[in-house]
């Protein structure tokens, strides 16, 4: 049995999902030979510490840790003080400066902790530096949950399709935009109406600009470009057009001739823009689904689709990353 001490930093929707999933999967993980012990959970109010593992039932009902914190330590201070093997970073994302996640990840990596994250900001701002920091410290940084949520994409390309040359990846990487465009097409309703519906359903934020202006999708394009195409690009290198200008009439005209209009992110073209997608294309998925087409030399085109967001779904991608760290055998250690 391999004991792994885990610190969770960030206790929002995804953080709750992580606590829930680690708790639910305890037995399965043990059968795999992994004893994943959540020894600390931190948010902006403080930290809950438990050396033998945190009792999920005690904290899952709490929106923040304010009432259950056993220590006032926060952020980098907590990361430095707590002796864990792996940090899960799920604080709110900021694509401009990457904080506070960037500082958390730097602190964890430089103190020899593996990092698993769903936080796009730090990777968009500083992927190259973080990757080097991980390599220099002999630890891993995994971030499947940052692109396409639970939909396997990064590990699919890095592991399953290894050996293929990847010509490009195009897809729908934002469920909010896809929901709005789907509803506008189905009902012939205006953008503002579909947006307010999405907000009422909790699919869109009160300030939806991050999603509908294409910022979120562009962040994912940057992450894919840097991690899978070694491109070393910044957010400002992406040519971004959001969906706010798309009209129900445009959607109807396109549909009549066999097309859907989807917000498509394209790597390595580094574009995010509303695009005509044939209705029978496997990437023309509806609702909040995400999808991606991966164009390869040996395997042709591979298409994946799945839920791009959600508490448990995102936690699932995080769990997969954690397991893969401990199940990875390097080729040179096998021989």
């Amino acid at each position: 049995m391999r004991d792994v001490k885990i610190s969770l930093v960030g206790y929002g929707i995804v953080g709750h999902g992580v606590v829930d999933v680690l708790n639910r999967k305890k037995k399965v993980l043990r059968d795999m030979g992994l004893n994943l012990k959540l020894i600390s959970v931190s948010d902006h109010t403080g930290t809950v510490l438990a050396e033998d593992g945190i009792d999920a039932d005690k904290i899952l009902g709490e929106r923040t840790l304010a009432n259950v914190a056993t220590s006032s330590m926060k952020g980098k201070e907590a990361i430095a003080a707590i002796d864990s093997d792996l940090m899960i970073e799920v604080t709110p994302t900021n694509i401009v400066h990457g904080q506070p996640g960037l500082g958390h990840m730097e602190a964890a990596l430089s103190s020899g902790k593996h990092v698993v994250t769903s936080n796009k900001g730090p990777l968009v701002v500083s992927y190259g530096k973080l990757k080097k920091l991980a390599e220099d410290n002999g630890v891993m940084m995994k971030f499947e949950a940052t692109v396409g949520g639970t939909m396997p994409l990064i590990s699919l390309v890095e592991r399953t399709l290894v050996g293929n040359q990847i010509y490009g990846i195009r897809g729908i990487f934002n469920g909010t935009c896809n929901y709005i465009l789907t509803r506008m097409t189905e009902e012939g309703i205006a953008y503002t109406h579909a947006l307010s519906e999405a907000q009422d359903m909790g699919i869109a934020e009160a300030d939806p600009s991050y999603d509908v202006e294409g910022v979120d999708t562009a962040g994912k394009v940057v992450i894919l470009a840097n991690s899978l195409f070694n491109m070393n690009v910044k957010y400002s290198d992406v040519d971004v057009t959001g969906i706010t200008g798309v009209t129900p009439e445009a959607l109807a005209l396109a549909k009549k001739r066999g097309y859907a209009i989807k917000l498509i992110g394209d790597v390595p073209a580094l574009t995010v823009r509303p695009t005509l997608v044939p209705l029978d294309s496997p990437i023309a998925v509806s609702g909040t689904l995400n999808s991606a087409a991966i164009y390869t030399d040996l395997s042709g085109t591979i298409t994946v689709s799945g839920l791009g967001a959600g508490s448990i779904e995102t936690a699932s991608a995080i769990l997969t990353d954690i397991i893969s760290i401990y199940r990875t055998k390097r080729i040179d250690t096998i021989f």
Binding site: Y167, D266, R273, P274, T275, T301
Partner: peptide
């Protein structure tokens, strides 16, 4: 709004 090309 341009069409997605079939192959990249």
């Amino acid at each position: 709004i341009e069409p997605i090309e079939a192959e990249a």
